[in-house]
Amino acid sequence: MKILTLNFLTCARKLCKSSNTAFPLHPKEADLEIVETEINVLFLKNIMGRLMWEELKGVVGELGLPDLPPTPPEPETLVETKLQAPEGDNTGLNIEKAEVPSQIAKDLHRVLLETCVKEGKLVCGNCGHEYAVREGIANFLLPGHLV
């Protein structure tokens, strides 16, 4: 499960719906894995405004990953312009301006979309329920008495 998803996932129990400690869930005994994917700057731009940055920083800290900046990066900082030859043109004669993902975007992509919880548990800060994660799949099935 991606770190991105952890920034949206909450406890599934009804009694935790209105609690402000049921989000974010806290990873416990987590094994992480990097799954490389193509960077998608338009997606990052779309999702930035929806991230809960403090909670993201918290979870990243709990997982022992390097610290994130204190405030979320501005959407404009996700791309930079670079002078480069058009694709497939090796003459070196035609140079054009191209928008490429910035280092900030690459770092965000790495943390949010490529860093995944592979095994472990996710614990609710309100009710203490532990959701098991195996092979990246979290089990959110609640036994009848916990629904």
Binding site: F8, G136, N139, F140
Partner: peptide, 18 residues
């Protein structure tokens, strides 16, 4: 995509506006 074992009849465990 990220996968979850979950029952839609028990709700959708994501924060508002996800």
């Amino acid at each position: 995509g990220d996968l979850f074992l979950a029952d839609a009849g028990q709700g959708v465990p994501f924060r508002a506006g996800t």
